[in-house]
Amino acid sequence: ADPHHAAAQEALARGDLEAAAAAYRAGLTEAPGDQDAALGLARVELFQRVATIDAAALRARLSADPDDVEAAIMLADVLVARGEVETGLTRLVGVVRRTTGDERERVRAHLVGLFQALGDAEPAVAPARRALAAALF
């Protein structure tokens, strides 16, 4: 077993996201092609992003302004982290459909990052990729 993976798993068991991220980063420094470490790091970074987010406040922001791209991205992160993967990805694809220019690119890039964090084994990823491609073209 890779010692960096083991250290990351131990840190996660303690709830120490910073140490887990550091262990995955160290592993990637030694083995840049380590897909498991890249996936683990992407997931830890997702959990770090949502650690202090108030989902109810985000929903209120989106109720007041459905085009609030920042709130939409943050709510999608929360949903994905909670296991509501299909809902989170579908919401962001909808934002891609409604936006243009830099905002659209920002949401697209964030979606791609979520796809990477979830991995291809996640059942919701393939349909969301197809929906994103359809929304873009």
Rank of each mutant, 00 (worst) to 15 (best):
residue 123 P to K: 07
residue 70 E to A: 15
residue 105 E to N: 04
residue 54 D to R: 07
residue 72 A to H: 03
residue 43 R to A: 12
residue 106 R to M: 11
residue 96 V to W: 00
residue 78 V to L: 04
residue 109 A to F: 12
residue 28 L to W: 03
residue 5 H to F: 03
residue 8 A to E: 03
residue 83 G to P: 00
residue 84 E to R: 11
residue 14 R to A: 12
residue 61 R to C: 13
residue 129 R to Y: 09
residue 90 T to N: 14
residue 67 D to Y: 13
residue 78 V to C: 09
residue 41 L to P: 10
residue 82 R to Y: 07
residue 102 D to I: 10
residue 111 L to H: 01
residue 46 L to I: 05
residue 100 T to K: 12
residue 107 V to S: 02
residue 81 A to M: 02
residue 106 R to N: 11
residue 58 L to G: 01
residue 51 A to E: 15
residue 61 R to L: 08
residue 11 A to I: 10
residue 66 P to C: 02
residue 1 A to V: 13
residue 6 A to R: 13
residue 75 L to P: 04
residue 23 A to W: 12
residue 42 A to R: 03
residue 120 D to R: 09
residue 82 R to K: 13
residue 104 R to Y: 04
residue 91 R to H: 05
residue 34 D to V: 06
residue 81 A to I: 06
residue 74 M to W: 13
residue 79 L to I: 13
residue 100 T to N: 11
residue 75 L to I: 13
residue 38 A to D: 15
residue 88 G to H: 05
residue 36 D to Y: 03
residue 103 E to D: 15
residue 92 L to Q: 06
residue 12 L to G: 00
residue 37 A to P: 04
residue 122 E to V: 01
residue 59 R to K: 11
residue 76 A to R: 00
residue 50 V to G: 06
residue 34 D to A: 14
residue 63 S to F: 10
residue 77 D to P: 12
residue 71 A to F: 07
residue 12 L to T: 00
residue 39 L to W: 00
residue 84 E to I: 09
residue 8 A to V: 08
residue 128 A to K: 02
residue 92 L to A: 05
residue 45 E to G: 12
residue 97 R to T: 10
residue 29 T to P: 11
residue 110 H to F: 06
residue 38 A to F: 08
residue 71 A to E: 05
residue 25 R to W: 01
residue 47 F to T: 11
residue 89 L to W: 02
residue 37 A to E: 13
residue 128 A to E: 07
residue 59 R to M: 15
residue 102 D to P: 01
residue 18 E to T: 15
residue 129 R to V: 03
residue 72 A to L: 05
residue 121 A to L: 05
residue 102 D to A: 15
residue 107 V to F: 00
residue 3 P to V: 14
residue 135 A to E: 12
residue 28 L to M: 07
residue 79 L to T: 09
residue 76 A to Y: 05
residue 34 D to N: 14
residue 104 R to W: 02
residue 60 A to H: 03
residue 23 A to M: 09
residue 126 A to K: 01
residue 109 A to D: 15
residue 59 R to L: 07
residue 4 H to K: 08
residue 120 D to T: 14
residue 27 G to A: 06
residue 123 P to V: 11
residue 5 H to K: 07
residue 58 L to P: 14
residue 27 G to N: 13
residue 8 A to W: 05
residue 124 A to D: 09
residue 96 V to M: 00
residue 98 R to E: 06
residue 133 A to G: 07
residue 4 H to G: 11
residue 103 E to W: 05
residue 121 A to I: 01
residue 98 R to M: 08
residue 77 D to E: 14
residue 71 A to V: 04
residue 96 V to A: 01
residue 22 A to N: 13
residue 27 G to S: 06
residue 88 G to R: 03
residue 27 G to T: 09
residue 136 L to R: 08
residue 66 P to R: 10
residue 116 Q to R: 09
residue 57 A to I: 00
residue 128 A to D: 04
residue 45 E to N: 14
residue 70 E to L: 14
